[in-house]
């Protein structure tokens, strides 16, 4: 985030100090949401452009709500109705959005690296709202904020917290960003998945705070946070696992598995959830499931990210 010109592209660009500053800033925006008029005029006259080259409901809406709560104007670009269908390139599209007066571009694309590429073409900050299987930094930041609210921590230091991330690691940009964010703040992360759901290249083995297991029951017993990933049928090799039922048996959290968890432990999920696959429907209704908090905190954290990129020429 120190580089205001390029924006928020990768979790690896952000230090622990910056994550903690953003969490603090987000907590101020959570307070704004509780006011009779839940909106502040800081970004009056600024234009935020969301360019989603891949379908999305919650991330795009969350960014748009966040920008509007800061009084920015929001311009929405969607591929289906754009000149991309006439063959206009991503570069020309991005430059056009910039020339239309955009002060900030929020980009999602199903290919890794597109937001980075766009950031190199335009002279305004770009937020990566998810690129292929690569990164989804705003999700990781809002998850850090949600965890910080649910545990008694000093200065948002995650040292001592055990986070278990379960599911389709290999296809998950959320997992990549979250592993970096959680370990940067000091947590230990255990990835639970079968070999077909883990990336072939040893992307996580360089991080000594990360361990990998196939034993979900064992991992649940010591976890403080159980982070379930969505089974991404649209990105998956046909042969990643034989049947949905087998996935549920090995990696789904049902009532029996939920009972193995510590009393203080919480369950998180980036959404949208597949009920009856990664999480049983009755478990999804439990008190310790923070999915609703994640959505609410997503607005506050995205307000913090946008605010930081558009108002401050200064380091956090």
């Amino acid at each position: 985030m120190t580089n205001v010109k390029t924006g928020l592209l990768d979790m690896s660009d952000i230090s622990a100090v910056e994550i903690r500053s953003l969490i603090k800033l987000a907590s101020f925006f959570s307070e704004v949401a509780k006011r009779p008029i839940p909106k502040v005029p800081v970004l009056t006259g600024k234009q935020v452009v969301t360019a989603f080259f891949e379908p999305s409901t919650r991330t795009r809406l969350s960014f748009e709500v966040a920008a509007r709560k800061l009084s920015a104007d929001v311009v929405t670009f969607t591929t289906a109705t754009s000149s991309l269908t006439k063959g206009e390139s991503i570069k020309d599209t991005a430059l056009t959005l910039r020339e239309l007066g955009g002060n900030l571009l929020i980009v999602r694309h199903n290919c890794a690296g597109v937001p980075h590429q766009i950031a190199s073409w335009v002279d305004i900050p770009v937020i990566n709202a998810g690129d292929g299987r690569h990164q989804h930094p705003s999700q990781a930041l809002l998850d850090c904020y949600t965890i910080s609210q649910n545990f008694t921590l000093t200065e948002n230091d995650f040292t001592g917290l055990e986070v278990v991330i379960v599911g389709d690691i290999t296809n998950s940009r959320v997992a990549r960003s979250c592993v970096e964010a959680f370990t940067t703040l000091g947590a230990r992360v255990t990835l639970v998945a079968g070999p077909t759901l883990l990336p072939a290249a040893p992307v996580f083995s360089a991080n000594d705070r990360v361990s990998i297991t196939e034993d979900l029951d064992g991992a649940l017993a010591t976890a403080d946070v159980v982070y379930l990933l969505r089974v991404q049928l649209e990105r998956m090799d046909k042969n990643a696992f034989p049947t949905v039922r087998e996935y549920r048996t090995r990696f789904g959290v049902d009532r029996r598995r939920s009972a193995l968890m510590k009393k203080s432990a919480v369950i998180m999920h980036p959404g949208p959830i597949n009920r009856g696959v990664e999480i049983a429907s009755d478990v999804a209704e439990q008190q310790n499931v923070l999915i609703g908090d994640q959505v609410k905190n997503g607005i506050a954290m995205r307000m913090a990210i946008i605010y930081n990129l558009l108002t401050s020429k200064y380091e956090l």
Partner: peptide, 26 residues
């Protein structure tokens, strides 16, 4: 009341909220 989000000097100097806004009633 912290007025950071209502100031008119963004970009002139660092404007980050410092402390909490807590208004107990309407």
């Amino acid at each position: 009341l912290d007025v950071a989000f209502y100031r008119d000097d963004y970009g002139i100097r660092p404007v980050l909220p410092e402390e909490v806004t807590l208004i107990p009633c309407d």
